[in-house]
Amino acid sequence: MDLILEGMKKAFWLLFTFDPEVLSILLLSLRVSATATLISLLIGITSGVAIALYRFRGRAMVVSLINTGMGLPPVVVGLFVTIFLWRNGPLGFLGILYTPMAMIIAQALIATPIVMGITLAAIQHLPEKLRLQILALGATRLQMVWLLIKEAKLPLLAAVMAGFGGVISEVGASMMVGGNIKGYTRVLTTATVMETSRGNFDMAIALGIILLLFAYFINLILTHIQQREGLR
């Protein structure tokens, strides 16, 4: 019990004195996960909409692959990104293994199928005739897609939450492709793993609390937007 109480005390101390190391870890976590989420939104929403609107051969297989991808284990992603970026790997010449860039790539790969799957479901859920109505209003294809995305904004907000929540809290891929290098690729999750294994529970608890608070605040904001929109 003492251990936890001590840990909590230390944690709050670290938090409220804005410990520079903790701060830099937090900022890196944010930068990597936000960038990865943005990339996944760009790819996920466009391809999700395209797959929802067009009928093509092998579509059913693509859809089931996306659905499987929504539950992609981060360690598997980490493994493949590592292999690709390995010095002798196909993309080894880039020399980005164990950099924040590698972590962004891995996290984007984890979040993209989540965003894609939710987008696909959201667009397909809109009434079939709405598409015809939008075209009949004189919309170009691009205007139609934009209006459909606007119509599906609530589920798409859920996609943002799910994507960001998924990557900020994953540890396997970040550890494997980032390497948990102090001051360079150390993020909240990898630091927590390391401090715990070292027995520095105070630091681990502090990082854990930050992670929790952080996930909570992001979701609070998004939920607020969603509820307000939903009630209008």
Binding site: P127, K129, L130, A136, L137, G138
Partner: peptide, 9 residues
Amino acid sequence: LAFVFQEPL
């Protein structure tokens, strides 16, 4: 043109 459907859409 303008098109009005059975559902307001």
